[in-house]
């Protein structure tokens, strides 16, 4: 049998991306813009700070060892919170799309919405008062997890929900198990949407982790808080720029992950 006329309608073969997606080169160019901006901002900050005669209070916050230790604390706290959020939110989102459980997705999303609407400063202080027995570190992690869980739960539900029903029906009709459909059809096709939620959560978390300082859990918030307490604007600005730079860098890494983890053909 000859391959018939419709062949002509098919797009060109090979790994060329479909319309709308940029070539790898263009994509890398956009990916390079953000770190460049961050580097410029940090260099400007460094030059500004080093051009100033710092007093002893300022020197206590603005030295390499202190900044590095607080940055490291911040990154650690963000990483721990994000990993816990991922471990909680993705399975929760998946569970809420299963038959029989999906009717709870409305109430759970409402709850998650509320938890995100509460100012995180209020949440963290509230928890610190409510759970006096817990170490501050655990309280900070718990508060930030609750605060950051929503985007991933919501996007996991949305991501699985947007998978073409006929694809799932065909998979089931061929004898794929429910778990098989989830693992090899629903989740891979939901990855781009879930990753968008992950990216949002990472950025939110990097920012809110700065609040950990208020219950003594450390991080770059310490520098901001030092600046406020001692009325030293240069310290305050340094802390803020560092948090912003970190948030931008983490968002940048997440964007790269999004580009590379999305399944082909979607």
């Amino acid at each position: 049998m000859a391959v018939v006329s419709e062949q002509g309608a098919a797009p060109a073969a090979g790994g060329t991306p479909g319309p709308g997606t940029k070539g790898p080169r263009a994509r890398w160019a956009t990916h390079l813009v953000r770190p460049a901006i961050v580097v410029v901002a940090l260099v400007v900050l460094y030059l500004y700070v080093s051009s100033r005669q710092l007093d002893s209070i300022e020197r206590r916050s603005l030295n390499a060892a202190y900044i590095l230790s607080r940055t490291w604390q911040h990154v650690q706290l963000t990483a721990i919170v994000s990993v816990i959020i991922l471990l909680v939110a993705v399975p929760l989102g998946v569970l809420l799309t299963r038959d029989g459980v999906s009717r709870f997705s409305g109430p759970v999303l409402t709850l998650a919405n509320i938890s995100q609407a509460i100012p995180s400063i209020g949440l963290i202080v509230l928890f610190a008062v409510a759970f006096l027995s817990l170490p501050v570190y655990a309280i900070a992690v718990l508060a930030f997890v609750i605060h950051g869980v929503l985007p991933i739960v919501r996007n996991t539900i949305a991501g699985i929900g947007q998978v073409d029903r006929s694809v799932i029906e065909a998979a089931r009709g061929m004898g794929m198990t429910k778990l098989g459909v989830l693992v090899s059809v629903e989740l891979p096709l939901a990855v781009p949407v879930i990753l968008a939620g992950v990216r949002t959560t990472l950025t939110i978390t990097t920012g809110t982790v700065a609040l950990a300082t208020f219950i003594g859990a450390g991080g770059l918030g310490d520098i901001i808080s030092n600046g406020l307490a001692s009325n030293r604007n240069i310290v305050l600005v340094t802390g803020s720029v560092l948090v912003a730079a970190l948030a931008l860098l983490i968002d940048w890494l997440a964007a790269i992950a999004e580009d590379n983890l999305a399944p082909r053909g979607v």
């Binding site: 006929s166 029906e169 065909a170 004898g175 794929m176 198990t177 096709l189 053909g265």
Partner: peptide, 22 residues
Amino acid sequence: DPDALRRRIGYAIQQTGLFPHR
């Protein structure tokens, strides 16, 4: 067992239901 049963029966639908990522 419905899954085992369905593997014995070919299934084709109008929307094709092809896996877009495969």
